[in-house]
């Protein structure tokens, strides 16, 4: 009797661990029946583009959430970086009577450094000023969005292409396709590999997990928890800076409202991927699958004609369900561990 119950628990546990992947397969099958063109090359490329954007944001968010934090500013960083990059290409940087135009590689470096600066500010507010991550990043979310609007007075930088004469062409490469695959997907893949190595194969990743699991113990064991937290916010904003540039390059335009609400997609992808909101656990592969689920849900519903309002309702339900299932998995894990301990006794 006990053995049967144990087997059932193990089966349930396996299903729960693979839940996001199962959901992804079910969604793909569902939408391929619901919309005939869902499995077309054009649609899949479009889904891949969106998954890459949410996925890159979610990679950074995974590190933050594992430490028990949250980063609400990423969507606004996307918008601000897009505006800064677009502005630098279109208008350059005017100082006095001179205007400086930078080459695209230099602009990319500047934007990534700018992202890191925002992350550093977030990290310092959280660790040194002891402000709750939710509040700290909520503040920077508004600040970044405000600056994004201020950059152009709310207007769009359109037709961002650069000029040969000014030596600033080539930005559209970030939004182009190579062998039919969007550049964003390649960047997502490279960042995902780096993130996976960072989280699982490098001491820093273990420190991140340790700080999220039990910060006091981590500190007592010599881990510089504040430094770890600052770095995860830098990683998160660094990822957001990439998304800001890719998005701007894909659209050939920068709008101050770009990335509005994308932090929610990133959080949803991370949570769906099995990262615990309480911190201490999470995987990059889970986050990647979570990003695919969010991308497929968003684009699938749009293709099926579901209104934007209902899409929000459904996304909200999916997030709540994911957290509930995550909690169930944790309870079951604890129960199984207890059972195993009793059996050993």
């Amino acid at each position: 009797m006990k053995s049967k119950s144990k087997n059932n628990n193990q089966l349930l546990m396996t299903l729960l661990k693979g839940r996001t992947f199962i959901v992804l397969i079910v969604l793909v099958i569902f939408f391929s029946f619901a919309s005939k063109s869902f499995l077309s090359l054009t649609t899949l490329t479009m889904v891949a583009k969106h998954v890459a954007l949410y996925g890159i944001l979610a990679l950074g968010m995974t590190f933050v959430i594992i430490t028990g934090g949250i980063d609400l500013s990423v969507g606004s960083v996307v918008g601000l970086v897009g505006m800064l990059a677009g502005g630098l290409i279109q208008e350059g940087l005017t100082i006095g009577s001179k205007t400086i135009y930078f080459s695209v590689p230099l602009i990319i470096i500047f934007m990534l450094l700018f992202g890191c600066l925002v992350g550093l500010i977030n990290g310092l507010i959280v660790t040194k000023l002891k402000v709750a991550p939710f509040i700290a990043t909520l503040g920077t979310m508004y600040i970044c969005r405000g600056f994004a609007n201020l950059r152009s007075g709310g207007a769009t930088f359109s037709n961002i292409k650069g000029y040969e004469g000014l030596g600033n062409t080539g930005f559209k490469v970030l939004g182009s396709n190579f062998l039919g695959i969007p550049a964003g997907v390649f960047i997502f893949a490279i960042l995902a590999i780096i993130a996976a190595i960072l989280l699982k194969k490098v001491p820093f990743g273990w420190y991140v997990l340790a700080v999220g699991g039990n910060e006091k113990s981590a500190r007592l064991s010599g881990i510089k928890a504040d430094k770890v937290k600052i770095i995860v916010y830098i990683i998160s904003a660094f990822c957001a800076a990439w998304v800001g540039m890719i998005n701007t390059a894909q659209l050939s335009a920068a709008h101050p409202a770009s990335g509005d609400g994308w932090e929610m997609n990133a959080i949803a992808a991370t949570v769906l991927g099995g990262t615990s909101m309480a911190g201490g656990s999470g995987t990059i592969i889970g986050t990647i699958v979570g990003a695919f689920v969010i991308g497929v849900i968003n684009d699938g519903m749009t293709m099926c004609g579901v209104s934007e309002f209902w899409q929000k309702v459904i996304r909200g339900c999916v997030i709540i369900l994911a957290v509930v299932i995550d909690q169930t998995q944790r309870n079951l894990q604890a129960k199984m561990a207890l059972q195993a301990r009793n059996e050993n006794k």
Binding site: S97, K98, T99, I100, Y101, F102, S103, Y163, G165, L166
Partner: peptide, 20 residues
């Protein structure tokens, strides 16, 4: 490296470089 990556022009003379 940066020297080749930066172009400094007089403000308002963009049209000479872009043709627009």
């Amino acid at each position: 490296c940066l020297g080749g990556c930066v172009k400094v022009i007089d403000k308002g003379t963009e049209a000479q470089y872009t043709g627009e």
